[in-house]
């Protein structure tokens, strides 16, 4: 119970500033300090979201966007795991592949879009592939550096007890790299959300990114801001879920953060 209370207070503290901003914004709108055609009031945005929800449109847009992000995230993570383990563990493969991956990493996300559309058309495949590409790099980078940073003294324990090859990877390298892998997952997910916007703005008939461009072309700022807010909300929510999962997986960690959560504020 006490633990629950503490988490509640920590979450509550993060909400103070956003709530204050929203109140200030609403007051400014009511008093006409902000023009409604530039920046609609928070209440107007909420009612737009509610309307979209009533028409059943909202769930459709949110659903398809979530689907694209999750599929891209899973695909990108799977590939990053494969290449991360190979390149982290086998030096020869790293020397062969890592420079190429590092070079590709520096290509801006939007630059890929025309190419992907050319190759795969305006389809789910091209969107999911683009998102997977965005997710891949941070997950890969963090996993490789996590594997390379494994404490040699712990590996010696493995060698002394006859651990080699896959068993050494599974029992030593992967768990030791887990904290940095989870950091990679979180920044990968963030990039996944950025790439889904890029993919949906370029060509889609559904999704939050489409809603965004639709709001722009039909001159409805409330829709634009509503989509932006929904992106923020969904991004934060999925990141929070990942953080929760990470905290559970890393519950063995004896770190400052876990210590702070156990102790009183």
């Amino acid at each position: 119970m006490r633990q629950w209370n503490k988490n509640f207070v920590i979450t509550g503290m993060g909400l103070i500033v956003p709530i204050f901003i929203v109140i200030l914004w609403q007051i400014s709108s009511i008093n006409g300090w902000i023009a409604a055609n530039i920046m609609p009031s928070p209440l107007k945005i909420v009612s737009t979201i509610v309307d979209l929800f009533r028409e059943g449109e909202l769930l459709e847009h949110v659903g398809i966007t979530l689907y694209r992000v999750s599929m891209g995230f899973l695909l990108g993570t799977a590939l990053a795991l494969l290449f991360g383990v190979l390149n982290g563990y086998f030096r020869t493969i790293r020397y062969l592949l890592d420079p190429l991956i590092q070079a590709l990493r520096n290509i801006p996300s939007l630059a890929w879009v025309p190419l992907f559309i050319l190759w795969m058309g305006i389809s789910e495949t091209s969107k999911i592939s683009l998102i997977a590409l965005g997710v891949f790099f941070p997950v890969y980078l963090n996993l490789v550096s996590g594997i390379q940073g494994v404490d040699r003294r712990l590996l010696e324990v493995g060698w002394v007890h006859g651990y080699q090859g896959w068993r050494l990877i599974r029992h030593f390298f992967l768990p030791a790299a887990l904290p940095s892998f989870i950091v990679g997952l979180r920044s990968g997910l963030g990039l996944g959300w950025m790439f889904v916007v890029a993919a949906e703005i370029m060509g889609a008939s559904k999704g939050l990114g489409f809603l965004l461009t639709d709001g722009q072309t039909t001159g409805r700022p409330a829709i634009i801001i509503a989509s932006i807010l929904l992106f923020a909300l969904l991004g934060k929510l999925t990141d929070y879920l990942l953080e929760l999962a990470g905290r559970r997986i890393l519950r063995w960690q004896d770190s400052y953060e876990s210590f702070g959560r156990r102790k009183a504020l």
């Binding site: 003294r153 712990l154 002394v160 768990p175 030791a176 960690q253 004896d254």
Partner: peptide
């Protein structure tokens, strides 16, 4: 290489924190 009948107790315990 390392013999299966030989074991080492290191200066630091070197326990795996994740197990």
């Amino acid at each position: 290489g390392i013999h299966p009948d030989t074991r080492i107790l290191f200066q630091d315990a070197r326990l795996l924190p994740w197990k």
